[in-house]
Amino acid sequence: MPERLFYELDITKRALIFDAGLKEFSQHPYDTASTNSIIKFAGISKGSLFKYFKNKEDLYFFILDSVIADLVTETTKDMSNLKGNLFEVVIGYAAIEFNWHISNPEKYQLLKRAFIDDHSAIFKKTINRYEASAESLYDSLLSDHLTKEPSSQKNTKIIKWVVEGFNQEFNPIIDSFDDVGMLKDAYLEELINYLNIVKNGIAD
């Protein structure tokens, strides 16, 4: 979390530091992202930056926290409009999230870097930091279809396992798409294929 001095800055200065950090961390892996570039873009000294944040990692997670909070806030607004069965809701939310990515390309680039496994120490910390909140968001998404019946809970778990497994398989090829719109179309098409297999049953 930022130090108290950061919040004593005027909102324009805070936004400039945030934008500088977002720009650098979205364009470069964490290990090679440069605090020198950040302070140059923000127009502050390195000494000032580390009065506002304990270290580079503290700054990184402040920016990532802010981006994820924005994603959750904006997509949650549209979640209440999702209608249909369990499968349709999952697909609908995926489309909503991709629409946010398309509208926020720099934030999307940061999230893409943050959640694609690069075997780094910061990736492991990132997963540990956000795993519980991601689970909570997904449970909220499926809450209208979840009852106390064991069969309902098992159905929800199966859908979650399928989506998680599909994401792990799909994530490594994300960088092969230059256009997020094309990525959205490919992702949704393949996700629908997998969910249809679950919905209709696996044929012999």
Rank of each mutant, 00 (worst) to 15 (best):
P2E: 04
F50R: 02
F123G: 00
Y108D: 07
K124Y: 11
K13V: 02
L59Q: 00
M182E: 14
K160S: 04
K23F: 14
R129L: 04
Q153P: 10
G84S: 10
I192S: 09
N81W: 13
Y194W: 07
L110S: 00
I63C: 05
N104R: 11
G43A: 04
N104W: 10
E88I: 02
S103R: 13
Y7P: 08
D175K: 04
W161F: 15
W161T: 12
R14D: 03
K199H: 15
A94E: 10
E8V: 03
K154G: 00
A20C: 00
N167W: 04
I127T: 11
S176R: 08
F123V: 07
I197A: 09
T32C: 08
D179W: 06
P2F: 03
L188H: 02
F50I: 11
F166C: 01
A42G: 10
V72C: 04
E24A: 13
N81D: 11
T32W: 09
K199D: 08
L183A: 03
I158Q: 07
N171V: 01
L86P: 03
F62P: 01
I38D: 10
P172D: 01
E189T: 11
N104G: 00
K83G: 09
S80T: 12
N128K: 13
E3V: 01
E24D: 12
K40Q: 15
Y187P: 03
I197R: 05
T12K: 14
A69F: 04
I39S: 03
R4H: 07
E8H: 08
F177G: 02
N99D: 15
T35S: 09
K154V: 12
T147N: 07
G43E: 06
K23D: 15
